[in-house]
């Protein structure tokens, strides 16, 4: 027996236990779930009305009444951050869902059929790949007007090729394995092979890519809102808030930009740490 075979069998401990040993992963899981909770229940948790002007002094620093301070219109920053969580998190989630669904479907079909189908779809995907996501999003805003819908759809299209290329490569490897040939000889139908055997095999890498994509989408959407093309004031999207806090930042009141920026960083980081864990777990479990 080879050493690789010996050690391999023991590595894939259940993901829970593996995560339990790594405090970083536990912290990331806690943060990610906390953010999920505020994304859903944020407005209810907010101590003040997020759009109420002058609930405190203008551009007040951190205090007991206003833990994150207030902005240049006297609105409570904590309330605005909580209320904006939904829009800031849901946008990237939709981008990830759309790009993953479409990208995976294109990739699996192209790997399965091969030949002309594969050639045409791969070239098309590469053409989309050549357009930077932000440029496409700005273009979409120019064509369809400001707001979150156009950038979210544009980013979904821009991210699709990344998913599709990754999944196609994985699918081709997997389809070359003897167990797929065995299923075909058994007479198992093509849709069944794709859905019941191929997709579960690809799921780990799809999940890993999705968590990475979430991070990028969140940063890109924040950047779009920062440019004033995404969510529109007075909505309290985190990107809008970072942009809105700019003058205060220069006047020595960093809280207005800092707290939403910090949340973006913390969210992206925790999701990426979880994603890395999912990947290594899947690599071990997938034998």
């Amino acid at each position: 027996m080879s050493i690789a075979q010996l050690t391999r069998g023991r590595v894939p401990a259940p993901a829970r236990r593996a995560a339990g040993r790594d405090p970083l992963v536990v912290a990331a899981a806690v943060v990610a779930s906390a953010i999920a909770v505020i994304a859903v229940a944020g407005p209810l948790l907010a101590p003040y009305d997020p759009n109420q002007l002058y609930v405190g002094e203008v551009s007040a620093p951190v205090s007991l009444d206003h833990p994150f301070g207030t902005d240049d219109l006297g609105r409570d920053v904590l309330s605005r951050v909580l209320a904006g969580a939904g829009a800031s998190v849901v946008g990237p989630v939709i981008v990830v869902l759309l790009s993953t669904l479409v990208g995976t479907a294109v990739a699996v079909l192209s790997a399965w059929f091969g030949g002309v189908v594969d050639g045409v779809s791969t070239r098309l995907v590469e053409v989309i790949f050549a357009i930077p996501g932000l440029v496409l999003a700005v273009l979409a805003v120019a064509m369809f007007g400001k707001g979150l819908v156009a950038p979210v759809v544009a980013l979904s299209i821009a991210y699709m090729p990344i998913v599709s290329r990754l999944v196609r490569a994985g699918a081709r490897t997997e389809l070359g394995k003897p167990y797929i040939a065995a299923l075909r000889i058994q007479g198992v139908g093509s849709p069944t092979i794709c859905v019941r055997h191929l997709l579960p095999a690809l799921l780990p890498s799809i999940l890993a890519q999705a968590t990475l994509g979430f991070g990028y989408a969140m940063l890109d959407l924040a950047a779009i809102s920062f440019l004033g093309l995404g969510a529109q004031p007075p909505a309290s999207d985190w990107g809008v808030m970072i942009a809105g806090g700019q003058p205060a930042l220069l006047n020595g009141a960093p809280e207005q930009s800092m707290f939403p920026a910090l949340l973006v960083v913390v969210t992206v980081l925790s999701v990426n740490i979880l994603g890395a864990r999912v990947t290594s777990w899947a690599e071990g479990a997938d034998r």
Partner: peptide, 11 residues
């Protein structure tokens, strides 16, 4: 097939 390690779906 030859290789029983690869001809069965591991999942």
């Amino acid at each position: 097939f030859q290789d029983p390690y690869q001809s069965l779906d591991p999942r």
